[in-house]
């Protein structure tokens, strides 16, 4: 990797703090619901229009809801980081505390056949693309080192 600075590809949604990359959401204080991407105007929980919305770091672990891959290069505005294109996996992970499913690419080297509904997944960060000035980092999911017994059996 080059020695260019690393920046978040979407700083409004994703912080790449050196030790703790995390997604940025907002919590509706009265209902207790969460929003990702962060919502600052008004809570989307019906009846809580007057509730305060607080910016929060979302959980960085969750349970794999489902997964797939991109077998072909996605069209623009996707920017392929490898040439030729290499398929990558995509995960939908349910954050336990927030009870919401968040999409993300899966780290390089982990393929769809390595995944199973119910696995524990962790948030991390990898390059999305590189331009003249910086390496643009995006959140990615990876299987956690510790997995529940028989992941998927009762997901």
């Amino acid at each position: 990797m080059s020695d260019k600075p690393q920046v978040s590809a979407r700083p409004e949604w994703f912080a790449i703090d050196a030790n703790a990359p995390h997604l940025i959401g907002t919590r509706c204080e009265k209902s207790g619901t969460f929003h990702f991407p962060p919502e600052y105007t008004m809570s989307r929980a019906p009846g809580f229009a007057d509730s305060e919305l607080t910016e929060v770091a979302l959980s960085t672990t969750g349970t794999l809801w489902s997964y797939t891959n991109a077998g072909y290069a996605p069209p623009e505005p996707y920017i392929a980081i490898t040439d030729p294109f290499e398929p990558f996996a995509i995960a939908a992970v349910e954050l336990a505390d927030e009870q919401m499913v968040v999409l993300g690419q899966v780290v390089a080297g982990v393929n769809a056949e390595d995944l199973r509904v119910g696995m524990t997944m962790e948030l991390t960060s990898e390059p999305l693309f590189e331009d003249d000035d910086a390496i643009h980092m995006i959140w990615k999911w990876k299987p956690a080192a510790d997995q529940p017994q028989a992941a998927g059996a009762d997901a």
Partner: peptide, 15 residues
């Protein structure tokens, strides 16, 4: 349910 073109579902925490 995660729906096109969303990044996330709604949260069921609280409601």
């Amino acid at each position: 349910i995660i729906e096109m073109p969303n990044f996330a579902t709604d949260s069921a925490a609280g409601v």
